[in-house]
Design a protein around this nucleic acid. Structure first.
Lengths: 344, 344
DNA sequence: CTGAAAGCGCTTACAG
DNA sequence: CTGAAAGCGCTTACAG
């Protein structure tokens, strides 16, 4: 760590070693075709020998393109940001671009500061990552380069928002339970203030209605995104509706809590009561007792999709509106058909 | 999103509006004292009116400093990276620096590629974030700017590594149990191949030995970092050593699994058997039944500490060796004194 | 105190 | 095909 930064090898060094001008060296390295093959060979050899790395700042100053994008997050600590971030980083790297990371921590001042900072660094575009899938105020008017919103939807329909399709995810979950022969299905989920909770609940009800069914208890149980709430809700449900045969949970934590409570009450999962979670949060879903059937939002792919749309916008092909990416049902051991004696 | 990037406001624009040369404008904005107060006022006003943001690339080209550091991670998806990342981001932002994020995904080729990319972007320094706290190969010989390793220790003692103090964390946990009057303490932890598991186990044994005790069963139970292993190990322990009165777990997932199994066996937590977890992973520890006493590694602060050391190195004050940051015991409901009838 | 000039490292017309 | 020159936006001696 004590090493000094040595002077960088510059194009001038390469040119000198190859015995050409910097202009020619530049053309040779950038594979422009106005260079003699033998000259190019000499330049490439010199660059190789000197381990030349072009200074990206100088190039950016000239071209106005930095091949850098700003990733503005609201709350990186949240559960959903990381897989999306990974997808964004991966897709950008595949496109030879880099990402400057800024976490606003839900603070508007901090967010504005970061927007200025990123613009001063001449980023080519922005990805704005929401902490929930609720509508969020558009930032685009402050940003003179292309912006794509991911996970959280911009409130300006002229922006492009790339979202997980919760209607689809909840439909997959509910149809799975119905197709297994479940008929008295309850829904335990997070706070009604979350769009995710409302959308999933609405979708579940729609699927049941189409099958001539309704939610056990008549309505979703809105609460918290926690195991604790799952345990509590399961007890309440068993007391009020002892004949339920399935519980669709708004996330995997709730599902894990439900599973724990059902076990304490001696109900067998999946035979007596099947459980579906949501999120495919590995540590909760796969490590649950029993492992949970759940909905995977494909978050990493969501990040990649957002970047592909950003690339399109950088190429002059911007889109607007909402792109919804489908979900995927992951079937594990927490769902199955009712026991034969109860089959109808 | 369809907006065109408009030409940026440059220092030339500001200078023209203020009626001065760019040289004077530059000095005024950078608060150098060779400028008349009235001139400075006019320049600042012009900059304000034009919403001038200096082009950081141009400045970087000139000064050789970009105020950007590269964060090289091995596996961002891992449990520990995020809090550390947050700490790094926060400390850098406080120092008016930005972070370029690169996740090598444990791939050596990809890692080398990122090192070259970051150097081409003229980063001022690197933070290298390990995915585990095992020793890792030093990258410093490829990097001509200051490097600080965080969480994972570099195998070169000439590097600086900022680490969580697992010896301390396990000591806090074990001393807590001993001080509560627990005497038959078991240790259930992750794979022995992890340094974290070995270090914590060794520390627990040392504390017990100092108190004239030894681990229930004579040795730690190494297994996996999962609830499943926690459940399994708890059953094994109860069968072999029905009189144990505490279990120190290598992480919170194991502890949650242990808590679930003990409940099924009708053992009261914390009265009959107290449990301590490790990591203070909120979703597992605080939401456990009962909420877990656990060890918090202060990971966010670890990231901040690493950045402070990097700043020192950038200021010409590099350090070498290992910095270990203390842990913190978080006491919740899973630990308490033995019931009076059993107290001795 | 102010400004003309040089220069950071590169790319791109343009002339030869 | 090659290279001298201009220039991206800024900062810093240096001269006045």
């Amino acid at each position: 760590m004590a090493r000094q930064r040595s002077r960088n090898v510059t194009l001038t060094d390469v040119a000198r070693r190859a015995g050409v001008s910097v202009a020619t060296a530049s053309k040779a390295l950038n594979a422009r075709d106005e260079v003699a093959p033998e000259t190019r060979r000499r330049v490439l050899e010199a660059a190789e020998q000197l381990a030349f790395q072009p200074n990206v700042l100088a190039r950016g100053l000239l071209t106005g393109r930095t091949r850098t994008i700003g990733l503005l997050t609201d709350e990186l600590g949240g559960r959903f940001s990381i897989p999306i971030l990974l997808g964004v980083e991966n897709a950008l790297a595949n496109g030879q671009m880099s990402v400057l990371l800024c976490d606003a921590r839900g603070d508007a001042i901090r967010r504005q500061h970061y927007i200025r900072t990123l613009l001063a660094r001449q980023v080519d575009g922005f990805v704005v990552l929401g902490e929930s899938n609720d509508l969020r105020p558009s930032l685009t008017r402050h940003i003179p380069v292309p912006v794509v919103y991911v996970y959280g939807e911009s409130d300006n329909p002229d922006d492009l928002s790339v979202l997980a399709d919760d209607e689809h995810g909840a439909r997959l979950a509910t149809e799975h339970l119905v197709s297994l022969g479940r008929r008295r299905i309850a829904h335990v989920t997070g706070p009604e203030s979350y769009r995710a909770a409302r959308d999933r609940a609405a979708s579940a009800r729609a699927v049941l209605a189409a099958a001539g069914l309704q939610l056990a208890g008549g309505a979703p149980l809105f609460g918290e995104w926690s195991q604790r709430w799952g345990r509590h809700a399961a007890r309440t449900l068993l007391a009020a509706h002892p004949d339920i045969d399935a519980i669709f949970c708004g996330n995997d934590q709730i599902a894990a809590g439900v599973a724990g409570a059902l076990r304490e009450f001696g109900r067998q999962v999946p035979e007596d009561i099947s459980i579906v979670g949501y999120d495919n949060w590995h540590e909760f879903a796969a490590d649950c007792q029993p492992p949970l059937t759940t909905v995977d939002l494909n978050l990493q792919r969501l990040g990649e999709t957002a970047v592909h749309h950003l690339f399109a916008a950088l190429d002059g092909q911007p889109a607007t509106g909402v792109v919804r990416q489908p979900c995927r049902l992951v079937v594990r051991d927490s769902t199955g058909p009712p026991p034969p004696r109860l089959a109808r």
